[in-house]
């Protein structure tokens, strides 16, 4: 799985950080998403998929291998 984020679309809701803090963080100044791990391990895949699903800005893209 390869994760990418569209920072320009991010609305800083932080739902992804609540679900997968190992993979996503937020910038202090404006809350915009920061991708910590582009290729998270399999144990994190469910949490990352859920993050992509509930992201209110559809700003998380997953390429499943």
């Amino acid at each position: 799985m390869k994760v990418s984020v569209a920072a320009a679309k991010c609305v800083a809701a932080g739902q992804c950080v609540l679900l997968a803090p190992e993979v996503f963080d937020q910038r202090d100044e404006d809350g915009v998403v920061v991708l910590l791990d582009e290729t998270p391990g399999p144990e994190l895949h469910d949490a990352v998929r859920e993050s992509a699903m509930v992201c209110p800005a559809a700003a998380i893209h997953l390429a499943e291998s």
């Binding site: 800083a12 932080g14 950080v17 609540l18 937020q26 910038r27 202090d28 809350g31």
Partner: peptide, 10 residues
């Protein structure tokens, strides 16, 4: 407020 502050409140 910082995201960390908000998450702490949540």
């Amino acid at each position: 407020q910082t995201p960390k502050t908000l998450r702490a409140w949540r």
